[in-house]
Design a protein around this nucleic acid. Sequence first.
DNA 1: AGCCTTTTTAC
DNA 2: TAAAAAGGC
Length: 462
Amino acid sequence: MRIHWHRRDLRVADNRGLADAPGRPVGLFVFDEAVLDHAAPPRVAFLLDALSSLRAAYRDRGSELFIRRGDPANVLSALADDLGVDVVSWNRDYSGLAADRDDRVADVLDEVGVTPQRFHDAICHPPGTITTNAGDPYSVYSYFWKKWRDREKDDPYPVPALADATDETTLPTLADLGFDEPTAELPKAGTAPARGRLAAFLEDDIYRYEEARDYPATECTSRLSADLKFGTIGIRAVDKQVREAIAAAETDSERESAAEFRSQLAWREFYTHVLAFNPEVVTENYKRYEHDIDWEDDPELLAAWKRGETGYPIVDAGMRQLQAEAYMHNRVRMIVASFLTKDLLIDWRHGYAHFRDRLVDHDTANDNGGWQWAASTGTDAQPYFRIFNPMTQGERYDPDAEYIREYVPELSGVEADVIHSWHELSPTQRANAAPEYPQPVVDHSQRREQALDMFEQARGDD
DNA sequence: AGCCTTTTTAC
DNA sequence: TAAAAAGGC
């Protein structure tokens, strides 16, 4: 018999390990340090939900998903012994954080005479397979994208036959695992809801994605981030259907729009490769400046940002959406990240840590990539002098202030043009228009100058 | 995926 | 003369 070990992400959808290797597998999920390390209530809740649907799928097919706690190497060797297992397969982690643990598990299995088989399905092309012609990993996205786009992809894998097995263990609760109930309202996890989200997106939204994706009130994004992170949908299945959608496009604009979405899939892989080759970026700047960046240490401004009470409406709307849904629209993620680093002059690590605590779709590689991009410290990051104006961004991407008013109730009765000129109003005008909504905590144009000074000093320009 | 200043273009 | 494009941080 064979065990398929579902790792800290479940990876149920395109499962090379399940489909390709010989033998009828049972499933195993282990709550271990690597699962609970850096976890947060929304993701643990999402994972438990997905786990419950995954186990139902195993049981429907006469098999079982075993749930265990402890050290994976010990759990795996004990279970392999009990069930007479000769092969254990699992999906690789390329984050650079768990690779050592994977190697250790493989060694232990070898020692007890069980064959470890490692596969991958979190990304289409593993790190090291998309490189410059000189063989180096890419540090510029656009060239990476051209190769990724044109490289042949494996098909999604069929679901294999499963073995007969029984297990009476029940799913742990959040409390068992030491987590509070998430306060945010979460999307439904599992293969079926994930496929539903993909199908809904492909029906129509993908064809206007390019023009609409930056407007948070329009909600024209796929909402697949948590599914891709946990593997309740597979990247190969998504990419295959996206390619079919590109082929089915009726106009150039539709084709380009669907291709733009496909490029977002490649961003995920780009950052996964960056992290695999540079695991230190989790805590260090990717881009080295001459001197340390002299970030400001201001706990009160950081707290105001976290609460969504900065007096910059689009920023506050984003931070409130994060609180309410453990999710934030991608355009708004860029805006709040730029605001934290370039207006509040606070180190991106604080923002990254907060997103890690709150987001249902937090993924080390992608979130770190996003934060370092916004902070101008990352691979292919935005240049330090390109500083978002949070008011202009709000006006451009939420012109009717629909998104802002949805998430910031203090502004729900305020006209869009008042909201978009909040920074220009006098304190009295602000108090009259929305007495409960905060005054701006900083002056953007002044802070912009400070940010430029901070980076020029780090560059050694002075 | 910025913003301000300077230069070029199109009447 | 104003709008568009280009240049630099």
